[in-house]
Design a protein around this nucleic acid. Structure first.
Length: 195
DNA sequence: GCCAACGTTGGC
DNA sequence: GCCAACGTTGGC
């Protein structure tokens, strides 16, 4: 059945506006002490939070902040990526459940991400809330994604310009619909099969 | 623990 | 506004 008017229009609009609907957000699942505080926060930690929801605080990069502040909307999905750990890769999927608001940790001297340059009447940093949706059916490792990325660069496949490698240091990054769908399709294949 | 890549800072 | 020095990220 064809899409009804409103649904169809919505899809058209989002395409022509170039709105980003999907994201990848990095977090560290292994303990690491930064200014005396353990910054560990893996997907298992998110699952243990009340309502399986947590604020995404501590982002201190302007590009990443701008994505969160200006483009993240309730209901959008993001890959939860495990970084700076023994086995980096995509662990699961989360949903944006609260849009941009002030990241209070910028004013907290005890917080590892305290920013002495941030003023209460003119905050610099913002965060969103994310809620656990599901684990990936299988962990999608960085190694697998990298092999695919390299293949797709020559073949023109869906991961040919994925930000995970073209903007490797961005901790909050956009994911295209094609990239998102392709990565989800990997879940049903044995590890390495798609390479 | 190393270090390449890259973002930020600050002198000029 | 350039760019060298410095700091951080994050894979390996």
């Amino acid at each position: 059945m064809p899409l009804r008017g409103a649904e169809c229009q919505e899809k058209q609009d989002s395409k022509t506006r170039g709105t980003i609907h999907k994201w990848l957000m990095k977090s560290e699942p292994e303990s690491r002490i930064e200014k005396g505080v353990d910054v560990k926060f893996g997907i298992e930690d998110l699952k243990k939070e009340p309502d399986q929801t947590a604020c995404w605080d501590g982002v201190r990069n302007y590009q990443a902040r701008n994505f969160m502040r200006d483009q993240m909307k309730n209901g959008q999905l993001a890959f939860f990526y495990h970084s700076n750990c023994k086995n980096p890769g995509i662990a699961g999927i989360v949903e944006i459940v609260k849009e941009s608001y002030v990241d209070y940790t910028q004013f907290d001297k005890a917080d590892p991400h305290y920013d002495s340059g941030a003023k209460k009447d003119n905050p610099k940093w913002f965060m969103v809330d994310v809620k656990f949706v599901r684990m990936m059916k299988r962990f999608i490792s960085l190694q697998e994604l990298k092999t695919l990325y390299q293949n797709h660069k020559s073949s023109g496949g869906p991961l040919k310009s994925i930000a995970l490698f073209t903007s490797a240091r961005l901790s909050v990054q956009p994911v295209t619909e094609d990239e998102f769908d392709f990565i989800c399709s990997l879940e049903d294949k044995p590890d390495g099969d798609a390479c």
